[in-house]
Design a protein around this nucleic acid. Structure first.
Length: 296
DNA sequence: AGATTTACCTGAGGGC
DNA sequence: TGCCCTCA
DNA sequence: GTAAATC
């Protein structure tokens, strides 16, 4: 699941190879992965433009082209990788005892799940592969960026300059209901998904089902501190690869090796030793420590 | 307004 | 080997 | 992972 750290990992990996390069041709094999515009128009408009800058907002990836902004969202299983024509493809798949059958790390030729290809000048490519097809791409005029709803409704950027406690508290107090639901909604805070939400809640000692209106000031403070910490650790570890996530060069992340709670239900809490519990919150599997995270 | 449910897809893994 | 189920 | 429909 590409969340903020995974998208950031891809952005950093693509940056040195793609910024300043011209997209010669766009090959869209699964037209529905482009939204808000006719597939043919998308390909025609993107073709010929130079990628000036690549960045990220929440879980969205942004490519600033000469005349447009290309917006990508990787959904649950999207992979955006660089294919270098001078490198050999790594062949085949490998079985992993925990996460099952995985593609070998490294670059691969397009396959049945490769739905969008940006052919660069010189023969290299940026390839979008998405097994579950939940990701999507869209092309905006620079002026449309501000008014674009899904982007405009995103909350605070946890690693950005406006990450200050007063702003965080205001955004959070504007909502009620379960704290984890709020985190997943992207609206007080942008970029957290099921993994990093659970991680941040555990690090801050907040129960995922706590109602926001009942949280104490110190709980909010702890959450405010924990969110950037778990995200930065994810980035430092180049993302969390449970199944599908790959970096810009096909490499796996290693954050899955140091998760505090996600995927560890039944195992012992690393902080207190109690057995971690699994519950359902907002229709998402949620793991927490009943000792460290008292319900408010 | 928030919550709950459903839909959008493919594949891994377990049980039988 | 395959079918059905759950889960991501 | 998100959006739309429904309570």
């Amino acid at each position: 699941m590409p969340e903020l750290p995974e998208v950031e990992t891809i952005v950093r990996g693509l940056k040195p190879r793609v910024e300043g390069r011209r997209i010669e041709r766009v090959e869209l094999r699964l037209p529905k992965q482009v939204r808000g515009m006719d597939a043919a128009a998308f390909c025609r408009l993107v073709g010929g433009q130079v990628v000036r800058r690549i960045s990220r907002r929440g879980k969205y990836l942004l490519m600033f082209l000469d005349r447009h902004v290309l917006l990508g969202h990787l959904g649950m299983s999207g992979q955006l990788t660089y294919w270098d024509r001078t490198r050999k493809d790594t062949p085949g798949f490998v079985a992993h005892p925990v996460t099952g059958l995985q593609r070998t790390p490294g670059q691969h030729a397009p396959d049945a799940h490769t739905h969008l290809l940006f052919h660069l000048e010189g023969g290299d490519r940026v390839q979008y592969r998405d097994i579950r097809q939940f990701g999507h791409w869209r092309l905006l005029e620079p002026g449309q960026l501000e008014g674009f709803k899904p982007l405009a409704r995103l909350g605070l950027e946890p690693l950005g300059p406006d990450w200050r406690f007063d702003a965080f508290r205001r955004a959070f107090r504007a909502r009620r209901g379960m704290v984890k639901a709020a985190l997943l909604s992207q609206s007080p805070v942008a970029g957290l998904g099921n993994i990093y939400a659970d991680e941040a809640l555990h690090l801050s000692g907040v129960h995922p089902r706590s109602r926001i209106e009942r949280l104490r000031e110190k709980d909010l403070r702890a959450l405010f501190d924990a969110i950037p910490r778990v995200l930065r650790k994810g980035i430092r570890n180049r993302g969390t690869t449970l199944m599908d996530f790959r970096g810009a060069h096909g490499e796996k992340g290693r954050n899955q090796e140091s998760l505090r709670v996600y995927g560890r239900h039944g195992a012992n809490c690393l902080a207190c030793g109690a057995a971690l519990r699994k519950i359902l919150v907002s229709q998402r599997t949620t793991v927490f420590c009943p000792r460290c995270q008292p319900k408010r």
